[in-house]
């Protein structure tokens, strides 16, 4: 309920009016769970944009997978992350080898949720794509039937990059790719995922930003 208010009153006006999206291939957005949405990561806005993209009734089934050390670092942020954003906290550094870091993600997929995942692991340098971490491959291997939709985002890192507090409006590109599935091999899977997003990136025109 609180989540719906937050999205209707703040996130949607922010994303659709202040920022403004240029969406390509909207028909490729998964319309039911279980599914995984994967994108490049440049800004805190990325998650909000991806969450407004998916159909309204699915909102409570959307689970952004987010770094535990960052989002649960204080009580206010933790409350917001867990109760409004419904994140699945993920350990970035695996300390206990006997614990399965992806158990919560698997559980969510089994109950039909849609995961939002940023394989770069962090926002990194604005508008630069880092290398993908292979956690997504473990998840794909465990759930070979779950479609994984690659999405390329551009512009949000200009609007609100890491370390900046002032939002500067830019129209942002959201290019959605064809879903892929576990290929049976980790390196070929990771290549096709990264390639999927890079191919999408080439679809658009992007002005210089240095």
């Amino acid at each position: 309920m609180l989540q719906q208010f937050f999205f209707v009153l703040i996130v949607r006006p922010l994303v659709l009016i202040v920022i403004g999206l240029n969406i390509r291939h909207r028909e490729r957005i998964p319309l039911k769970g279980p599914a995984i949405v994967v994108s490049n990561h440049n800004s805190h806005l990325d998650t909000l944009v991806l969450m407004t993209l998916l159909p309204w009734p699915l909102l409570r089934h959307l689970r952004p997978v987010a770094a535990k050390d960052y989002f649960l670092r204080n009580r206010v942020l933790a409350w917001f992350a867990l109760n409004i954003m419904h994140i699945i906290p993920l350990e970035r550094e695996v300390i206990d080898r006997h614990q399965d870091p992806l158990a919560a993600c698997s559980g969510a997929l089994q109950s039909g949720d849609i995961l939002i995942l940023f394989p770069e692991g962090s926002r990194g340098d604005p508008e630069q794509m880092g290398t993908f971490k292979s956690g997504i491959a473990h998840l794909a291997k465990r759930h070979p039937d779950v479609p994984i939709t690659p999405i390329f985002l551009h512009g949000l890192g200009k609007a609100l990059p890491k370390g900046e507090a002032i939002l500067v409006p830019f129209f942002c590109d959201v290019f959605i790719g064809e879903p892929i599935r576990w290929s049976g091999d980790r390196s070929s899977f990771m290549t096709s995922l990264e390639q999927g997003i890079k191919t999408l990136a080439e679809e658009g025109y992007r002005p210089a930003w240095e």
């Binding site: 512009g155 129209f171 002005p207």
Partner: peptide
């Protein structure tokens, strides 16, 4: 959004 801009010029 269309023209080249400088990162330094956000503000």
């Amino acid at each position: 959004s269309l023209i080249p801009t400088r990162r330094a010029d956000r503000r």
